[in-house]
Nucleic acid binder design. Sequence first.
DNA 1: TTTGTGGCTAAGCGCTTGCTTAGCTTCCCG
DNA 2: CGGGAAGCTAAGCAAGCGCTTAGCCACAAA
Lengths: 204, 204
Amino acid sequence: MHGVNVSAVTDSLDWDHVEPPAARRLVQGAIDAFAERGFQATTTRDIASRAGMSPAALYVHYPSKERLLFEISLYGHNAALEILRSADTGGAPADRLRSLVAAFTAWHARHHTIAHVVQYELNALSPEHLAEVATIRRAISAQIEQVLTDGVQDGSFAVPDLPGTTLAVLSLSIDVARWYTPHRGDPDALGKLYADLAHRMVQA
Amino acid sequence: MHGVNVSAVTDSLDWDHVEPPAARRLVQGAIDAFAERGFQATTTRDIASRAGMSPAALYVHYPSKERLLFEISLYGHNAALEILRSADTGGAPADRLRSLVAAFTAWHARHHTIAHVVQYELNALSPEHLAEVATIRRAISAQIEQVLTDGVQDGSFAVPDLPGTTLAVLSLSIDVARWYTPHRGDPDALGKLYADLAHRMVQA
DNA sequence: TTTGTGGCTAAGCGCTTGCTTAGCTTCCCG
DNA sequence: CGGGAAGCTAAGCAAGCGCTTAGCCACAAA
């Protein structure tokens, strides 16, 4: 709060690719507002005032409120997928699963404002935008499922219901975005706990 | 669908205590609408038309749209707590945990429309109504925590982080309300799977 | 028959919504 | 110095919002 260009709520996910700076301020204001009140309850006047400008200025940078949400949702989904992919460093399935779950969970805690928008504002997207985001979601799910499959194949995991268990593991991490607040503790510690729980769910 | 008084979406949770029938139709219409679009995106005209009446008629039975949500949320929370309590039949902690998780999970699947409203429309409640509902939520959480505590005490469970694990177990079931649709399979089968996963998360 | 009450509708009020228009300023490039 | 683009604001428009008002009708009690 010392004049640094960081909003009160938005976390440190970098939006450097958003230009010009005024557009970036809009994105950050929108994330805070969407996470706080939900898309439908957020007004364009609210977003604009968080970015320090008049309501009309929003439309210089984005053609609609929905488009602003889409931009946020798309980038957020890509960031989440990227986190998962870079956490999959190879090795034994057990180690890979722990690494994936730890990273995915910690991401949802650390970036819980964006994660909240990503996970809970899907049905405010237009059908076309939802479809685009859904392909990323399938890739996220596939990343987890692959590790479980590998673990079953080499005998280190026992998973009677593969799709159901995949969904459960994802579910555990995703739900963090619903309840997490900073006073709930360190994101990395939570990641380790959840990695442990997920591993125990599947180990042979 | 043979003229029986059941809406297209609302599940079989009985709202017999809501009188007169017109008020019950409003509640069922509101549940469907809130679950489908969210509280903020739902109009009183939409709710009223689902109940087959004019917008003004809603205010004969409820003083505001928020009050309608509160009535639904309160009853839904109580129903969820009741499910948990009646599933806690005693015996070994492992059996109790499995029974609780199976029942709680199956409830969220079977009644996923109401569950969605219960779990994801909390911040549309007034502060006073939210506080009232929060006490029920604490009771739900305490019910799970007690079983875990008992299991740790008799040595059948190994739980390094009790509050974190309690939250995780609850989280798993609650998140079902986010993604479940009837084509995802039988609620009871899902309950069994989740009981299994939860048990493996904590067993010594 | 009168009176009152519960349940409803047509109409509409005051306000807010997402978004548009018209026009202003600033700055870059020739 | 001239001109156009980029970025912004004040004002406002049409539509839709939650909710209210006034009054109608069916029916039960007196």
